[in-house]
């Protein structure tokens, strides 16, 4: 079985994000990159499927900057067999990323039996690459999956919907699945895994190699800004009983007119 996992590299959750000079993205110079946490579930699921299907290979694919290849190295240290890196700016839009992923998978020379992605990236939270990729590849796809079972070519997945209810889908391979928290517990990369990863093949491609051009961009970022700073909270003094009626009225009034919550 040829299993592909699409991973994204995102800033560590503790990063203090700053817009870059021209507002086209965030400042990436001093960022510590990690694998998108939802993608860790996808990698783990791929490794579990690999373990259950002798002779399978897991290929991780990433589209993004090349200064740091943390996400791919981590995936290979966890146990993925090889990696493909498509060199691109880090602020590419979802459509271009999906097209690049498709191009990379096509170019790998392997026909994909299963493609796994995280349900969303925690940096831009677009939640659309798996679906666009599925449309481009004309494959069935289910997102936000929390359960996975496989029986020959048939795959049964559980999908979480609003309110915690589950939908159950049956699909035929090949298909594209996007994982949510709860589907598994991602393993740690082991020290021997990290050392072996060094010797695993990583193929590097350009956007041109995978057929993506500037015309493919559907979204251009132009004005990244920090959200306005939260004003300090208001304090009301109602220690004196005589003031209490007045203060309560004032607070209720502000909740209506200013905060607009009642």
């Amino acid at each position: 079985m040829n299993i592909f996992v699409c991973v994204k590299q995102v800033p560590d959750t503790e990063t203090k994000v700053q817009p870059n000079g021209d507002g086209t993205f965030i400042e990436t110079n001093s960022i510590k990159w990690i694998m998108n946490p939802y993608d860790e579930f996808a990698v783990e699921q791929a490794l579990l499927v690999k373990a259950a299907n002798a002779g399978s290979t897991v290929t991780v694919v990433r589209v993004g900057g090349v200064k740091d290849t943390e996400a791919l190295r981590t995936a290979m240290a966890m146990g993925a067999d090889e990696a493909i890196l498509v060199e691109a700016e880090d602020n590419l839009d979802s459509y271009s990323i999906a097209k690049a992923l498709k191009g990379a998978i096509d170019k790998s020379g392997k026909s994909a039996d299963l493609i796994l992605c995280g349900k969303q990236a925690i940096d831009d939270d677009c939640l659309q690459v798996p679906q666009i990729l599925a449309t481009m590849m004309e494959l069935p796809s289910v997102s936000v999956i929390v359960g996975f079972e496989q029986d020959g070519d048939k795959v049964t997945v559980k999908r979480e919907i609003e309110g915690g209810a589950l939908e159950i889908y049956e699909l035929n391979k090949p298909c594209i699945l996007a994982t949510n928290k709860g589907i598994n517990t991602p393993r740690y990369a082991s020290l021997p895994g990290i050392m072996k990863a060094k010797r695993k093949p990583m193929q590097q491609l350009s956007l041109g190699d995978v057929g993506v051009t500037a015309d493919d961009r559907r979204v251009v970022y132009s004005d990244f800004q920090l959200p306005p700073e939260k004003p300090a909270g208001k304090k009301f003094d109602a220690m004196d009983e005589a003031d209490q009626q007045k203060v309560v009225e004032e607070v209720v009034g502000l909740l209506r007119t200013e905060a607009k919550v009642i």
């Binding site: 943390e70 190295r73 981590t74 240290a77 740690y188 990369a189 020290l191 990290i194 050392m195 990863a197 060094k198």
Partner: peptide, 12 residues
């Protein structure tokens, strides 16, 4: 790069 990864993994 491997040592940094070992450190990050052990820290996690």
């Amino acid at each position: 790069a491997e040592q940094i990864e070992m450190y990050n993994m052990a820290k996690k």
